[in-house]
């Protein structure tokens, strides 16, 4: 994986530093760099990234709907310190995980990132999201052919006025 300057590749480098190198990054919203692929048959999900709403994006990416699961641990701040770079991570105890994706409901395009999880890889990914306003963040985990989800509201506030 190569890195160049700019916010996108920097985020990529951090993922590697965090030990997430075994995870193949196939998209980071509209960030301007070429996707890196783990397997030759993984096509860049262009249609899914174009969708405005979360439901449409999930449908375009997976073609099915997800059910909530308490086996997904979604870690994100309650209130973002900087809406431009909101740290988020997902781990799951679900078996046979094949992909993990992040959606930001109120972003112009809901799908923020999608990861293919190769067989035998620990299903744990972290990323940074850009969020314009307070909204739900959803993680979708595809495991054994089924879709599972976890959602958390992240507040993006104008700040100020702490007691």
């Amino acid at each position: 994986m190569t890195t160049t300057t700019g916010p996108g590749p920097l985020a990529t480098r951090r993922l590697i530093l965090q030990g997430a190198a075994s995870v193949a990054l196939i998209g980071l919203g509209n960030l301007p760099f070429a996707p890196v692929r783990a397997a030759a048959n993984d096509k860049y999900p262009e249609e899914a990234f174009k969708q405005k709403s979360e439901a449409d994006a999930i449908k375009a990416l997976y073609g099915k709907t997800a059910e909530p699961s308490d086996k997904i641990k979604l870690d994100a701040p309650e209130i973002a310190e900087n809406g431009g770079v909101v740290p988020i991570s997902v781990t799951t105890t679900l078996d046979k995980v094949t992909s993990i994706s992040f959606f930001v409901a109120e972003n112009p395009s809901a799908l923020a990132a999608s990861y293919k999880i190769p067989d035998g890889t620990v299903p744990s990914v972290a990323n940074r999201l850009k969020m314009a306003k307070t909204t739900n963040v959803t993680a979708i985990v595809e495991a054994d052919g089924k879709l599972y989800s976890a959602t958390k509201e992240v507040k993006v506030t104008v700040g100020g006025c702490g007691g």
Binding site: E81, G160, G162
Partner: peptide
């Protein structure tokens, strides 16, 4: 510590 220092005050 106060959990929201960089949000409630200038970062």
């Amino acid at each position: 510590a106060f959990p929201y220092v960089p949000i409630a005050h200038p970062k």
